[in-house]
Amino acid sequence: MLKLKGIEEVYYPQTIKETVDILRSHGDLAEVVGGGLDISVFPNPRIKFLIFLDNLNLSYVKDSSEGIKIGAMTTITNLIESDLIKDYMGGCVHSVLPEIATELLRNQITVGGSLGKREPYSDIVTLLYGLNGKIVLSDGEWDEIVSINDFYKENFKRLLKERIIKEVILEKYPKDYFFSMKRYVRNATDIALFNMATLLKTEGKMITSARVAAGSRPKPAYLMQGAGEFLKGRELSEDLAEEFGKFVEEHIEVGTDTRTTEEYRKNLSHIYAKRILLEALEAAK
């Protein structure tokens, strides 16, 4: 079964600059390939040129003064095996990763590919939204660091015709931050029907700032602005957890697709929002 009939040529650039030159010369007819899962499962018949990033040495997880740097070609398996990720946010990020997809696909899905495609069901995009990941875009001469919010506010697909995602930087949050991610699946290897990631900064039980991201809605992941504002300045308690669950259920933007209904996703959002706050309360004790 020839999946990508239109492909005329493939490239194996050695540098980011070379990659971007090829991209620019072919415009909309070229596509950069991360792990290559998306392009092989959802082939785009318009694409004629593929650019493989495998020779750019972009598979790494390393510590730096700016935060933890994750190369664009790093797979989910690489993240799971990284000691830095094992310890990051008290292990809360590490515990989510083995639940995503299957071992075979975790070996193929890359961080850069997930961000560059922003598929609606991506758990990686929700995770990085929740963690307020910074995306490093590069044309080989200049690196630009943008927040994940700004990246998706722009026409990111257009941006990626001029630059590539080089890496992601995760801030090393101090101990007064709490992170949790939830995803709902019908069976162990299913695509999430809904996912939610929350980052809270607390002083004792007081929430001083909050980020709430949700995905698989079935639209792509987004940052639920109102939810962060709702939590700011509130004190963690069981009552607040219930109140927050109701708030999220009422305000979250979810829809219906063939896999589940808007109502079901709203119910899930209520349960997860509440559960996350109860976990944060427990952690604050």
């Binding site: 390939v33 092989s40 075979l104 193929q108």
Partner: peptide, 12 residues
Amino acid sequence: EPHTSCTILAAK
């Protein structure tokens, strides 16, 4: 490393 060969481009 195990991979699904149906989703791996041969050229890659």
